[in-house]
Design a protein around this nucleic acid. Structure first.
Lengths: 143, 143
DNA sequence: AAATTAAATGCATCATAGTTGCATTTGTGA
DNA sequence: TCACAAATGCAACTATGATGCATTTAATTT
């Protein structure tokens, strides 16, 4: 399974003409191991053997290539999540719902929910929407 | 008119049991002079005679009291806008639409638009929504 | 109107997020 | 396996934001 997963990531890097390096594969592994977005500070902690600057550069290219997307949580902290295949194929289809738990502060990407149609005041031309919801996540609601 | 406006701000500070000081009135004046949100760096530039720390503290109390609200733009920069009266009266009625222009980077608060009803996956309990749209604003569309 | 006091400001200092330039290393294609 | 472009690491720097403490100031009380 780890084999297969790793192959999937290597393929992903190939697709975007990026070299398959240790730090890059590790970033993908760390992010895919969670069901929520990963904050930059957390990621930095998980990647202790990798230079901070390298991490920033990896995150930047991944975002440019559409491999991951960046979400700012309620505190303005950068969070990153791997894009769904849907997101990669249709570049303009980036309408996500992001849920930010006010208790544990986790950011959930609820990609399945689609946003309803919307009309803006005259003159505004939108090319992307993101809906943010804040509240209590399932795990924090339980206890 | 400046008199009246100033009185309105003084009244606003009174309402929230905050002392009517120069820096605070200046922040309110600067923010209300614009039809878009003001970024923290811009605000810092506009308030040159006021200490950076004081500005941060003013923004924090104003936000706590519900006088202003904070919006992070596409770059993660903090932007601030004065809340509408609607927003002050009903604390839970903070469903805004924020439009971030990708050309001039301005953030517009389109308070008038109401968000459609939404249902989240089971277990998620939302207490606030914010819709972000990015694209081109009326002024940048023109030219 | 002057004195008192809590609140607000200013200053020094620190922490963290993010960037840039350059030298070194490493993946990949010839 | 060689060569070169790409990626990493390191040093240094900028910007945003926070904290502790001394000083000032707005508002209250007499």
């Amino acid at each position: 399974m780890t084999e297969i997963t790793n192959n999937r990531f290597e393929h992903l890097l190939d697709l975007h003409h990026l070299k398959k390096t240790g730090p890059r594969l590790k970033v993908l592994a760390m992010m895919s191991a969670k069901n929520t977005a990963t904050s930059q500070p957390d990621l930095e902690g998980l990647m202790e053997d990798v230079d901070r600057v390298t991490l920033y550069r990896i995150l930047n290219v991944f975002e440019e290539k559409g491999i991951i997307h960046k979400i700012f949580d309620l505190n303005g902290t950068a969070n990153y999540a791997i894009c769904t295949s849907n997101c990669q194929e249709h570049l303009h289809h980036d309408e996500h719902l992001h849920f930010n738990c006010t208790v544990c502060n986790k950011v959930y990407c609820l990609n399945d929910l689609s946003l309803p149609a919307f009309n803006l005041p005259p003159g505004f031309k939108a090319d992307g929407f993101t809906l943010y919801a804040s509240g209590t996540c399932p795990q924090c609601s339980k206890k």
